[in-house]
Design a binder for these strands. Structure first.
Lengths: 95, 95
DNA sequence: GACATATTTGCGCAAATAAGCAAATATTTC
DNA sequence: GAAATATTTGCTTATTTGCGCAAATATGTC
């Protein structure tokens, strides 16, 4: 694993390692359909602008996928990609 | 998963999500025997005091195990525990 | 006890981060 | 075009975080 990848992984873990962002991720786990920021800001009792910024971070790190739908944007988890990265780290740690 | 567990998980991810700390974890991955702070501070070109603090964070979150050996303390990865938590998160995300 | 080595702690500093609010920016609906 | 709704952005504030250095502490060696 080179430096670049490690930095990327660190950013991913940091993105997930903030309580409100992690809460949003869990919320998305339980939603079968994509959710918008208004919905997601409720699960952590936070201002919509704050949710918007958190979701931006999650999107930058590839945790969530954004879809533009009219005046709203819906977010869904990149389940397989994230799960794969977490498992790869688990494997490496255990090796 | 309750609030307490989620906070704990967030702290774990945050602990892993800092580049120098993650580098130490990778370094420990490659060491068959426990290492002390002097050794681990080299892998990220950081002052010994900084390494000491990083290792304290990793120990608090259960990432590493500390063993007191004379005037030095040696650190080793809690491989199975951490791998298990990462896989549990991966499973939940993928569910 | 003196000295060397490993670790921790106190301090200060700069940068990053999270939050709320208000204003700006879409975009839909009437 | 006006009103309503969803999101983003600018601004400010408070807190946290990472770092280095120097001093303190602990422990082994002579």
């Amino acid at each position: 694993m080179d430096t670049r990848e490690r930095e990327e992984l660190a950013r991913l873990l940091k993105a997930l390692g903030e309580y409100n962002r992690l809460s949003m991720v869990y919320e998305l786990c339980e939603c079968s359909s994509p959710r918008n920021a208004m919905c997601l800001c409720e699960c952590c009792s936070v201002d919509a602008s704050v949710a918007s910024r958190h979701l931006k971070v999650l999107a930058q790190e590839g945790v969530v996928q954004v879809e533009k739908k009219g005046r709203e944007r819906t977010y869904s988890l990149n389940k397989t990609a994230i799960a794969q990265k977490l498992r790869a780290l688990a494997d490496q740690i255990e090796s």
